[in-house]
Structures are given as structure tokens and as C-alpha cells.
Design a protein around this nucleic acid. Sequence first.
DNA 1: TAAAAAATTAAACACTTGTTTAAATTTTGG
DNA 2: CCAAAATTTAAACAAGTGTTTAATTTTTTA
Lengths: 206, 206
Amino acid sequence: MKRDLSTEEKIKAAAKKVFMNKGFDGCSVRDIAKEVGSNVALLNYYFRSKEKLFELIFEGAMSDFLQSMIEVFSSELSLKEKTTLLIEKEFDFFMEHPELPMFILQAIHQNKGEHPMPSHFFEPISKTGIFQQLEAAQANGEMRHISLRNVTILLMSNVHYPFMSKKLTQQFHGIDETTLQQDLLAHKSYVKEMLINYLFPQNPKQ
Amino acid sequence: MKRDLSTEEKIKAAAKKVFMNKGFDGCSVRDIAKEVGSNVALLNYYFRSKEKLFELIFEGAMSDFLQSMIEVFSSELSLKEKTTLLIEKEFDFFMEHPELPMFILQAIHQNKGEHPMPSHFFEPISKTGIFQQLEAAQANGEMRHISLRNVTILLMSNVHYPFMSKKLTQQFHGIDETTLQQDLLAHKSYVKEMLINYLFPQNPKQ
DNA sequence: TAAAAAATTAAACACTTGTTTAAATTTTGG
DNA sequence: CCAAAATTTAAACAAGTGTTTAATTTTTTA
């Protein structure tokens, strides 16, 4: 009765790897089976279908994707400190998992897998009280008056995109992985300085 | 002997639409044929294969993608003015073609289509003399000392990403297309102010 | 207008797709 | 140890894939 989970986990790991590299449409279940080193039917034995397997991988990825956000927002820091820490943490995380932003955005863009989204992912973040803190900081004069949504766009743009565009950047400038890695580290500190200066100006406007 | 180009163009238009929406792997040639309202064999009659057709679409998209850059760089303006103008133009362009950034980055990410890239796209930009202008502006003290590559990453992040993440943003915040459109317009002016302030500071560092 | 060329089609090709079936193997529990 | 359950496999399934062929229709041109 007791089932050995190692096979199930091996399939998930293989599926994650293949899905990340080729996308849902870009791979077949046989590609994944080959990566596992087993039969195709085994995938449907553990997970009911290719789609269900993908949804599982997607949810895990999404969870990782939002992890730093919740961690940082839950801490007892000023908004300025939280912003710095968030950029720091997200950057370090995506340095280790550079494929994640593209995977997430592509899946959502093409509506692969069921995305509960609205409340399912929004609520945990809302519960950290970050929104109230933002309003308070803006009322304070500590922070520039920008909507939460626009702050989000600014942050995500500067943190996610550089990893999504890795290949484009490499091909465009004709540089190798190591050089790009250095550029990304430089980008991190630029973004920290630029965003902090902009969002928390010395002489706040309005 | 004179061939009517309208069919060929109709196929290209349909292919562009379908490829943009579903990606190379996400669609079949029959999907495209259905969009055209014709037979599958016709696609291979005009273009030799699905892949060749995709490469054509990709190259056109890439050309559009870099168009504003070359236009602005070729003008007779200061670097600061060029930066403002570039953000302005790219934004307006992507407002009209929001799917483009995701299409390009996804194609490159998954190595769909042959990407000549290195010189083929880099050279025309290099020929505008923008690199010399950048070095001069930095020697001047007019501009912050940031490598060309990092300037590129900063600009692209803030201009491309917001369009790539449209669906994510909408689902995340639970907003409709019109509201997002307004956010994007706001983002444009934020980015202009933020980037200009950062790249061309009043009291330049170093 | 009639022969030649071009455009369009339906049908078939060989192959891959995700999934299912049923048999074989391994593991488990009494 | 041995039946029962769980796991793994090979094989087959129907449907979909990109591409090609050959026939048909339309257009061109002389």
C-alpha cells in the first residue's frame, strides 16, 4: 500500500525541466518519459494527463515566483527597506532560477493550465498588510504617490525582464554567459539605487 | 506570369496573427489555413514549410521591434533627448502591438527560427553612431557611467516587460483592459522621469 | 480563344501526438 | 510464502501533425 514517491518525484523533476526548456506545446509526454528514463504510460499513471502534470508544475513555479514577495512583505521593516530587500532577494533567486519568469509569463500568456489567480495568489500578499503600509508611507510623504499597480509594474519590469531576455541580450551583444552574469549583478545595484531614489525621493513631490 | 500577391499577403497576415497568439508550437498549419480560409497545401505552395513561414514572420517582427531604435538613434539630438524620444516612441508602438515583445523573446528563448542576430541586427544600430555618442556623453559628465549593455537592459526592461506581463498584471490585480491601458500610460511617464533622472543626473557621479 | 502557366484543392503520406488497455513485474502485508 | 495490491511496461488507439502528390480550377498570354 505504501507507495514509493521517488518515481513520482523523478517525473515531476523531469517534467519541470522539460516544460521550462520547451514549454507545454514544445514538448511531448514522450520527451518527459525519456528524461525520466521510463515508459510514457507511467506519467498518466501518476498524473492523469499531460495537462494535469503541467498545472502541477505551474503551480509550484508560481509559488516559488511569489515566495520572496510574501517573505519580505511579512517582515517588520520600513517600506523603503522592504523594497531594497525585495529587489535583493528576487534577484538572487532568479540568478538561481533564470527560466522561471519566462515560464510563468508564457504559460499565462497562452493560457496553459488553469490559473486560479485572482484571490488565490492575491490574498496571501494582501494579508501581509503591504497595501496599508504603502498608503501610509505615501500619506507620510515618505514615498512618491504612485499606485500600487504601477509600483508593481516598475519592480517586476526591472527584476524579471533581465532574466527573460538573457538569450536576446547575449545574442544582441555577442557576449558569453559569464559576462552576462556580471551585467546582471551590475543591473541589480543600478535598479536598487534607481528605484529607491525614484520611489522614496529626498524631497517628495506632492 | 504576373502573380496576385493578395493571397500570399493574406497568408502572411494570418500566420502572423496565429503565431503571435499561440506560438510556433502552439498552432498547426491547419489553424493558419483556417484563418486564411483556404487549403493547407497553399501554405507550402507559397512558403516552403511551416518553419520557413515562421522565420519570415519572425524577421518582420524583429524588424518592427528594432525600428524605433534605429529611427531615434539616427536623429540629430542629444543623448538625453534621444532617450526620452526612444521611450516615447517604443511605448506608443507597443501600445499598438503589445504582443510583439513576448513573441520575439519567446521565439529566441526556444530557438524557433534561425536567428542571424549578431551582426545582422547589431550593425545597423552600430552605424547610427550611438555608441560613440554614449561614450562622449559619459566623458562629458553629461551621463552616468553605465555600460552600453546595462543601459540597454534598463531601457528594455521598463519598455518591454509591461506589455509582456499584461495578462499577469490583469489577473493579478483583477483589472480590465481599459484600466491596464491607463496604468501603462502612467508607467510611460514614470519611466521617462525615472530613467532620465538616473542616467542623466544633475550632479553626475564620478 | 486556345494553349500554357499559375493558383487552388482534395486526398493521401508517413509520422507524432496524448491516452488507454491489458499484460508483466515488483512490492506489500497477513 | 503467497495472494493481493501497486508499479511498470509494451502495444495499440484514434486523432492530429507537416508535407507531398496529383488533379482541378483559374488566370495569363500569345
